[in-house]
Simulated scan of single mutants.
Amino acid sequence: MRKTTRKRFRFFVGIDVSRDFFDYTLKKGRLTIDQGREENNANGIDRFIQALAAVETYNHPVCVFGMEHTGVYCNHLLRLLKKSKANIVHENALAIRNSLGLVRGKTDQLDSERIASYLYKNREDLVLWKPKRDVIIHLGVLSSLREKLNVNHMSVRHTLNEYAEFADQAVADLWSASTALTLSSIKQDINDIETRIKLLWTSDKSLKELMEIMMSVPNIGEKTALQILIRTNEFKDITDPRKFACLAGIAPFPYQSGKSLNGRSRVSYMADNRLKSLLHLCSISAIRNNPEFSTYFKRKTREEGKNGMLVVNAIRFKLVLRVFACVKGNRMYQSNYLTKRRDKVLIS
């Protein structure tokens, strides 16, 4: 992960962003000195920046702006604030909410004030936002679009199969004829997107090297490698496999308290479900096709009596460890890599 900033901030601006407007609160330390609402466009953002500059004692270099992840709604603010050389924190909404303790009520203005309070409270540990490269942004957009089109395609196909099995033949034929062009068009769009995705990462030297390294790990396919690449921002935002495991929802956490609660460790529901799903498919493929993991799964479940999903989760993490180890070492996967290293040490 990027290192936290040690810059001493004096002004804290919390921004609550919606589609058409954004509310803001300016604090100097704990004291609220300005609040307002502007339109979420270039003109509104210019007025917002000018209003801050007009505040007495305001100092832009020692001010930090914070906002929650709200999809594309933050894009105008992020771009124009970065252009003004602002310090920006782009944080997960749940992280902000959980850090503030017990809160009551909710309005846009109140949310902006809470974000400003979060910035002040965590001023020593803030991680400043840095824009991703355009190629990573484009890969993320295309990957998300491909997933949505796949969902739509499967939805129509599922209904078509149900009609074919349970409805009259005439009704099934009517449904099939009415959706044939839609299904064909969606499938063509998916194929075109996949071609564009491959062209993007193969045309970029560093991305191509990272993708080839990740795909050299047995049972890690192109889609899984691409999602790892996007979510880690080329391994710039996340370099620790354990932190990545937390993001992917495959890191188990203990659930114990005193004598009354002694539950088994389990993964958190707060996870990137797309990543988790892809890693699950990789682990199932590894159990079926990789003798090493097949033997490991049988030993843990049959001989040691471990829960099957617990072992599957362990295999997910083993795959993640291998990917990160290869990327860190800038090398392709080698099944006997550790053996070679031991032999080298013994010889020397």
Results as ranks from 00 to 15, higher is better:
226 L>G: 11
26 L>D: 00
161 N>I: 11
151 V>E: 06
103 V>P: 02
78 L>K: 07
103 V>W: 09
17 V>W: 10
182 T>Y: 15
307 N>W: 05
205 K>L: 03
242 R>T: 07
276 K>Q: 15
223 K>E: 00
272 D>E: 14
264 R>C: 03
132 K>Y: 07
159 T>I: 15
173 D>E: 09
258 G>W: 00
231 R>C: 04
215 M>P: 10
165 E>M: 15
52 L>E: 02
263 G>T: 02
17 V>T: 11
64 V>T: 09
167 A>H: 12
286 A>R: 15
35 Q>W: 06
263 G>M: 06
164 A>L: 11
204 D>W: 05
325 A>K: 05
293 F>C: 07
266 R>H: 14
295 T>C: 12
326 C>G: 12
156 V>P: 04
252 P>K: 05
80 L>T: 03
20 D>A: 09
331 R>W: 05
235 F>P: 02
73 Y>V: 00
250 I>T: 13
262 N>D: 05
112 S>R: 10
330 N>D: 03
253 F>C: 08
346 L>F: 13
322 R>A: 14
101 G>K: 14
282 C>G: 01
6 R>F: 11
88 I>N: 05
23 D>I: 05
338 L>K: 10
44 G>L: 01
270 M>L: 14
183 L>T: 09
266 R>I: 01
154 M>K: 08
216 S>F: 06
27 K>G: 03
62 V>H: 03
249 G>T: 04
51 A>G: 01
139 L>N: 02
47 R>G: 02
202 T>N: 02
164 A>D: 13
145 L>K: 00
56 E>I: 06
225 A>C: 06
270 M>D: 07
73 Y>L: 04
123 R>L: 00
38 E>K: 14
105 G>V: 04
39 E>Q: 07
8 R>H: 08
134 D>E: 12
126 L>K: 02
316 R>Y: 13
341 R>I: 11
1 M>D: 06
